[in-house]
Design a protein around this nucleic acid. Structure first.
Lengths: 232, 232
DNA sequence: GCATATTTGTCCGTATGTATA
DNA sequence: CTATACATACGGACAAATATG
């Protein structure tokens, strides 16, 4: 509730919400951004009336935006209680990593048959991450890391896998809020990613898969440790 | 349109629409069932006024149900034109099989670590399929086949994989409508499924995976051939 | 190509049911 | 248990776009 009030203040000053595209999608975009960057922390209840009057949209439109974000697993809808920013449990984090292991290792194994430019795309996001790190922008490093992993599953050239992966990673960002320092979380993976990209380009898919699995283990353990600590 | 009128007749006689859960979800349930069983074939336009008055719900509620089903990929929404039952293209069929290959082979590889009762669950759906075949109920055979494959991915014990798989198979049912005779489509796979289940229980995961991949190839080819023929 | 009718998109006011203080 | 707040659902209205003649 405190988070909601604070967020409302900041938003009302900065959001004219001009006409463009579908109203519901615009609202969803605004909300998604604020959820991902932490302005609306997990557990926050999104009041229909408050947000509706704030953004100048009707409840019907707002509810459509809620549906969109619920489908992305960023919001949860509880009947007659309202919608809330999703709270990821430790089990959810583990499940997300389980699915990432399946999809991303499949991506690595598909690298041999993939388009060469798709493989180069992987490397591009490694470079973007390193540039962001030098600039000290650790949020951007996190974004680059997401894109790196999406590029790996993109080697499968499957629209449905892409969409699934996008949802998984957006969901995972909800868990990042438990990490205090983003730098300590993201920095060690810059080198890992670079190594994996090199192995992919060189065609050593077996080692690339091993390195990727090792990354999953350490990243997952780090997140789960942060969860355990928060509850202590 | 002809399909729509015919469907309306059959429905209006049989639907009291009792209270429970959210109205929009109930409407979505009704529509989903009618889409899957072919009463509302792909391409059918769902008129807001017709269905709304038919089910006795307001337009707002109905539109909410449409959104739910659109997110399940069963309906497509065209701006200012309305919603239509999704028409799967050949590329969609291929993409669905690509994703099934990834998830189901991962399921087979996870069989070693899976709970024994989860493995037995796979066999149960094989038996159900054979019983339905003897009874001549080929729609039920199709349902049992779906459950068989869902049981394979259930070996991963991942809620997100389960949900993804459920959506994939519901979507795939849209493609089945191009098959003329369900029997010729489903019958040959009864034996395949039985063999795969046996291999899983015996612990020969490598052969089980090979057999599964062979099944995907023939089933996908059969569906795509039916697509090609329909266009000819 | 134009004018008309139909349908969807959006919003509002209100009544009812449910959860919570 | 009562009261309040809020989500759910309905019906009506008008604008905007599409389909039809």
């Amino acid at each position: 509730m405190a988070a909601m009030a604070e967020w409302a203040e900041r938003l009302s000053a900065a959001r004219p919400l001009l006409d463009r595209a579908s109203a519901a999608e615009m609202v969803a975009d605004v909300l998604r951004e604020n959820i991902i960057d932490g302005s609306l922390p997990p557990g926050t209840r999104l009041s229909e009336e408050t947000i509706g009057s704030l953004l100048g949209v009707s409840r019907n439109t707002l509810r459509e935006a809620f549906r969109l974000l619920s489908h992305e697993n960023l919001l949860v809808h509880e009947l007659h209680r309202g919608v809330f920013v999703r709270k990821l449990a430790a089990a959810d984090v583990a499940d997300i990593y389980a699915m990432r292991r399946i999809l991303e290792t499949a991506g690595v194994r598909a690298a041999a048959q993939a388009q060469p430019e798709a493989v180069r795309e992987v490397r591009k996001h490694v470079d973007a991450g390193q540039a962001a790190a030098e600039a000290g922008d650790w949020v951007a490093v996190g974004t680059a890391n997401m894109r790196f992993h999406r590029a790996i599953t993109a080697l499968l050239a499957s629209p449905r896998v892409d969409a699934t992966m996008a949802r998984l990673l957006a969901e995972l960002r909800l868990a990042f809020h438990v990490m205090g320092e983003l730098r300590t979380f993201h920095e060690p993976y810059l080198e890992d990613n670079a190594r994996i990209a090199t192995l992919l380009i060189e065609g050593d898919h077996e080692r690339a898969e091993r390195e990727l699995l090792a990354y999953f283990d350490t990243a997952e353990a780090q997140l789960l440790a942060a969860y355990a600590e928060r509850l202590a």
